[in-house]
Nucleic acid binder design. Sequence first.
DNA 1: GGGTTAAATGCGAATAAGATGCATTTACAA
DNA 2: TTGTAAATGCATCTTATTCGCATTTAACCC
Lengths: 137, 137
Amino acid sequence: MADSQNNWPTGMKRTKQRESVLFILEEAEKPLSALDICSKMDKSGDTAWLSTVYRILELFIKKGIVLKTNLMNSDMSVFELNRFKHKHYAVCMNCNKILTLENCPMERFIPKLEDEDFHVMGHNLEIFGFCKDCKAH
Amino acid sequence: MADSQNNWPTGMKRTKQRESVLFILEEAEKPLSALDICSKMDKSGDTAWLSTVYRILELFIKKGIVLKTNLMNSDMSVFELNRFKHKHYAVCMNCNKILTLENCPMERFIPKLEDEDFHVMGHNLEIFGFCKDCKAH
DNA sequence: GGGTTAAATGCGAATAAGATGCATTTACAA
DNA sequence: TTGTAAATGCATCTTATTCGCATTTAACCC
């Protein structure tokens, strides 16, 4: 099961379900919803209850292994492996395709705030528009 | 009732509830949730059902009068008057205070995407961190 | 390897934001 | 003033996510 086979993060029990979630996230190129993950598990034979998947994801987030995002004000969160590199997405307003943004405008940006003592920890950014397939209606 | 008294957007019936929602949004300095708006209406005597508030907000959004945002991956949307100027926020990770960001890094930014035909329509950005009151725990 | 136990999962039920359906009410045009 | 399409009150539904508890399981000890 890829990398996770030999490399298990410390401080958590190694269960079939956790291995399966981690494997799916390792293979995924784009963020997945909890339901996506659950379906993929079903297909591969490692079935797990949706609530279990949420609990596993919650744990992975706490451990810093996984990142949670909400794209386009959607009410469904998506999850991806924390690959420890800065990342943003562009989302197609028509087909919801997710594209990786390869640069970041925040690199050399100094935020101007009313509260000049605000201690910036990070930022969320997403671009929206129409992908090449949806541009021509 | 401030500006909205004499200046009613065209193409929609002028009802007590709609006037009240618009008034509240005009007075508000920061985005409000549907529930916030509903509570403020209760206090002022113009009670309305929460589902009505949602319907009014939906209409205002469609008319371009109101903007909807989700801050910090929260499952609750917030709404503000569309003042037709570009706007982003900084949110305190501790007290959830919302601060207005007065500049925008996207002004002179050219996004790099795998799909070089992506037609950018806009972007969402938020900064998170700790405000001056929460910085010193 | 077998037993012990704290932690994880299965499963159902609870939450909470938001949407929907329908009967009643209301704004507004004729 | 009256007719009517549209808006609201109200209840109920939906959907993502969380919680509670009984059962199962990983991992440590012998």
